[in-house]
Design a protein around this nucleic acid. Structure first.
Lengths: 121, 121
DNA sequence: GTAACATATGCATATATATGCATATGAGAT
DNA sequence: ATCTCATATGCATATATATGCATATGTTAC
């Protein structure tokens, strides 16, 4: 990628750019943030999250409720476990999942309020 | 997908399930929400968003600042335009992009506060 | 008009990932 | 120990999407 032909002298506003560089989150934080949003970027996972938003449910309940294959639910629950968004407890043969903290609710409601405002326009 | 062999009589907690069905966002809202989070789920787009968080920048500035190919930046700006998260204005040959509203900042800071709390643990 | 520049877009490709089948694991009941 | 049930996991596959090259579009200057 040659940078000579890209508006080197004319265009870039160097003073602004150096200011922005200071205030931007650093590269790792950005990647962590993107990884976190990836978790919410799948409708199946979002449905699961919403299902356990207010109470714990076992895997089978979630499958039944959302009309999803048990395998699919387990796969996505693993993703949610790995990203530490859910906790779980065993009770006999069943495993009950629930949300780990309140941040999830904040993130989702921030998203929902954006969506709903878009619809008004 | 046969539903007979899935814990039909033993497991599902039908009363809870019917309650949850009432409180869950409906399918379309979930899909819209997932689509919105998809936008934030890519580090290149997040970088671009952060770059224009506080002031407008032209495409060339963004490429320069983030050390990204101009084509890549244009592609991702198109995604952001299509999802109505950014606005833009032309000034001569250059086009300046900026954020469209405050929701973006709320969503990102909700995400950031989750990230930073995770690190403390 | 043409040349130069800033940005956008079509196409091809590489990479990620969501899903489902088959099967493994782990727990209770007999 | 064996059977059944609830859940998890390995593997294969289909789909989505991020990127870059080549090129098109739109603007200014001459």
């Amino acid at each position: 990628m040659k940078d000579e032909f890209i508006c080197k002298e004319n265009c870039p506003h160097y003073k602004i750019i150096s200011q922005v560089k200071l205030t931007c989150p650093n590269g790792n934080a950005i990647i962590d943030l993107a990884d976190m949003f990836k978790i919410f970027a799948d409708s199946t996972r979002l449905k699961i999250i919403c299902a356990i938003l207010k109470q714990e449910l076992c895997v089978c309940d979630i499958s039944e409720l959302l009309n999803l294959n048990q395998t699919t639910v387990s796969h996505q629950l693993k993703v949610l476990r790995d990203s530490k968004l859910v906790k779980y407890r065993r009770e006999g043969k069943q495993i009950f999942y629930s949300l780990k903290d309140e941040h999830v609710i904040q993130i989702i409601s921030a998203g929902l309020s954006h969506i709903s405002e878009e619809e008004e326009k």
